[in-house]
Design a protein around this nucleic acid. Structure first.
Lengths: 221, 221
DNA sequence: ACAAGTCTGTTGTTTTTACAACAGAAAAGA
DNA sequence: TCTTTTCTGTTGTAAAAACAACAGACTTGT
């Protein structure tokens, strides 16, 4: 567990908490760690979830395949982001989507009950932890709302532009790279890949942006 | 504030907490209450938010108008649901959407800092409250994911069916009523109203469902 | 009860998307 | 290095959605 300390320090959940205390907290929270290789399932639809997870390294996709075989990437979990928070209530059913490692990933599992109950050993950082946990869940919410923003755009072009401009803002540069390949981006935005590819090229021809592989450049108006 | 106790008892945030304690907790959390009449703005885009809100009565819409005047209902807040949770982190900016009362509504405002910090007077129900707060935020996340499920459907027909069947499940009956009118439903699902209206009638002609005004009946296959 | 305004269904036209199929480029594997 | 597989762009066609415009039903307010 010690070897993850440097990873953990970087994520919001443990911000403002010293190295030494992180270890004791992990213990206090019954934390466990597991690595997943690319393509491996972290959870499958129908499973019961009793933990709250944080992604310490790598990248995960929350995805769902419908009756007709269409894959939908509901959300992408990035480093420091939380997942499983929708299943911590007593009456929440089984998982309705798959969680899959988009690349080699390290996942932290926490005992939810321990987080929410005041630490029996009066762990001095519990207050800080609860606060950080709220921040993490709040970030998660933000990313869901952000995605709703892309999805509520009516056309493929608008979906693309809202996603790309958002990504540019997030990476603080008009020149940035994305983690999706074309098919994944289409699955994420819930559009047809070829139509999206077509639209991307139109945007390029109109001089609004440029791209090579997963590197994008947005041009000023 | 006392007159809201009966309202508060019904919402999850105060579940498993006795009448007497609710009052002292409201005090502990610096809670305030305000009523909004139908159509009134609770918050406007660009405002700073420093509280966490719970809807005690009525119905709210989180909505956004884009450059071209298209209205998008990002989410509907129902009784007992929380909002503003995405803005509790120190570095979250201003509100990116409007919050508007879809009908006469009662909103509770809480001091976020008080919730997250251990009660100085050692309020005995603080642990319970924190847990309930997590449950509430978890519910909120669920509703966002649920909406992403509708939005990720490719066609208007599929969006309608996924929304309606979900609503039937939620109301435990194939016969139910919805709170949206046609335009609002279209704005919620991000589709064109007339096209949606058309699709609804097609579904009715095919014998899959029936409706009068906001009353819907789904038929078995 | 009447007038004004809103809501809903309907239709035809234009635009956009999905779908299918394919070829060249790039990547992975032997 | 050569082969196989995956990824991406491209095109044409069919299906679907957006858009605009309108009429009747229903509401609201006076």
């Amino acid at each position: 567990m010690e070897k993850y300390i440097s990873l953990l320090k970087k994520i919001k959940l443990f911000s403002l908490i010293g190295d030494d205390d992180i270890l004791s907290m992990l213990n206090c929270l019954n934390a466990t760690v597991r690595e997943y290789s690319k393509g491996e399932y972290v959870f499958r639809q129908g499973e019961y979830i009793r933990n709250l997870m944080i992604l310490a390294e790598g990248r995960l996709h929350i995805q769902k395949e419908d009756y007709w075989g269409n894959l939908n990437i509901l959300n992408e979990i990035r480093i420091g982001e939380m997942f499983g928070e929708a299943y911590i209530t007593p009456d929440s059913g089984t998982l309705i989507s798959d969680v899959i490692a988009a690349e080699t990933s390290t996942v932290l599992f926490f005992d939810m009950e321990r987080i929410l109950t005041v630490c029996p050993s009066a762990c001095p950082f519990h207050t800080r932890l609860v606060k950080n946990m709220f921040y993490a869940i709040s970030d998660k919410n933000k990313s869901l709302v952000r995605k709703l923003g892309y999805m509520s755009q009516r056309s493929t072009r608008e979906k693309l532009l809202s996603y790309l401009s958002d990504e540019a803002k997030r990476q603080n540069s008009g020149s940035f790279s994305i983690s999706f390949n074309r098919q994944q981006l289409a699955d994420f935005l819930s559009v047809d890949r070829s139509a999206m590819s077509n639209e991307l090229c139109k945007l390029r021809n109109e001089g609004m942006l440029d791209f090579h592989k997963n590197e994008f450049v947005l041009y000023e108006v």
